[in-house]
Design a protein around this nucleic acid. Structure first.
Lengths: 231, 231
DNA sequence: ACCTGAACACCGTTCAAGT
DNA sequence: ACCTGAACACCGTTCAAGT
């Protein structure tokens, strides 16, 4: 029967608390469920109170990105460039998987946040330390693109578990019009000889792509060095 | 002094006219300027009239994507897989460049539209015809990712023209914190020996990346065929 | 039956009034 | 000086009233 009139104000609202609450909200409800008003409610605060800590929603999103980027492991030291890049990218991927909204928000920005820029800078540094010229580093950064942050646009999502019934429907519906897509979807769900299809293995595909790129980069690097020593 | 009471109703509003108007609106004002209400106004129509032709905004966006995808050239016939894929991807890129909002909208969809699926299906067909197995095709489609549609996430946009003064400011501001990013930005703007930096050449970078991937695919394809004939 | 104005349930953000 | 309720200028979409 305690009186409930004065709800205990947890902590005195700070930028950090606002950002963490926003990340949590987007994690559970998706980015489209994040509004200034809803966030304020979550924090037990009037909407306008948020504007003391973030200038506007844009800046809130910037801050949220930085929270995610902050979760990426620092680069390994003392390893050769390829595994250093590989490890860091895969660590970024883990952070991004924890916050599925983040890749979309990062892309939607026209200018990267300072922390993203810092991450990129250190990644460039790994290539430079590995003996890549400035120009070649520039090119490979473009090639690796968003994958350097640990994500790729999945234009077609075949990683969901498909139960046999749905599969049969897909067969009938999509089969005639998209036979090639169907063939891949079917093959993917039977791969790995699990009883029922579990869709394709995103982690495998990501690493497959990453390694193909890194191998290509290695070749370019060697060609460049050969050209240098030849002249 | 003509009477203006009855504005001439151009055409009797159709799904096609709605979609084309929406595309035009997004082309000039950006996707964030596209609202059902503004679109209706552009068409000289009450907002609710749109809902006769599209179920909701989601479906409007789907239709807009299909307009863009419809601009992509059909695949060349009678050429080997690599140049067929290359040509088609570069044609997709041209379409996407004409509608800068499109890549973002395409990504934002969780399921591809039928026309996107059809495009993917025909692209898969090109690989299959080139002798790639179903599984290898699956992998390379993941590797090529969004680039197959002609776009990549640019996490850092160094393609803008930078005048020397801005460059000097960048040098001072970014230099200490992001030396590696700066080095690349500087180098990119001096490349091609134009007098003033024009930023990096996006078309070159896109083709560089695409060709690196295609060469990698070629190698994988040959390895696979060698494995087949060996067994 | 079709069309459409008003209304509903939201937004992000401004601003002036309250303390 | 700080805080905040109300208001503003938008959204997408429902719905009932008008023809």
């Amino acid at each position: 029967m305690a009186k409930q009139i004065e709800a205990p104000r947890r902590a005195p609202l700070s930028r950090g608390r606002v950002l963490r609450a926003a990340v949590a909200l987007a994690d559970v409800g998706g980015i489209e469920s994040l509004s200034m008003r809803k966030l304020a409610e979550d924090l037990g605060v009037v909407p306008m109170a948020l504007y003391k800590h973030v200038a506007n929603k844009e800046e809130l999103l910037d801050g949220m990105i930085d929270v995610v980027v902050g979760e990426i492991d620092p680069p390994a030291t003392g390893t050769e460039w390829k595994s250093a890049v590989r490890q860091r990218v895969l660590s970024a991927r883990q952070a991004l998987l924890r916050h599925p909204w983040a890749s979309f928000v990062i892309e939607s920005k026209k200018t990267p946040t300072p922390m993203v820029l810092e991450y990129m800078d250190s990644m460039i540094g790994l290539f430079r330390a590995g003996g890549f010229s400035v120009n070649l580093t520039h090119h490979v950064m473009h090639v690796i693109g968003s994958r350097v942050m640990g994500f790729t646009q999945e234009l077609f999502n075949d990683s969901r578990t498909v139960d046999p019934e749905v599969q049969a429907v897909m067969m009938r519906e999509l089969g005639p019009k998209f036979p090639n897509v169907l063939a891949i979807a079917m093959a993917a769900s039977h791969e790995g000889e699990s009883v029922v299809g579990q869709g394709c293995d995103d982690q495998f595909e990501f690493e497959f792509a990453l390694d193909l790129l890194l191998d290509g980069f290695e070749r370019l690097r060697q060609e460049e060095r050969a050209r240098e020593t030849a002249s």
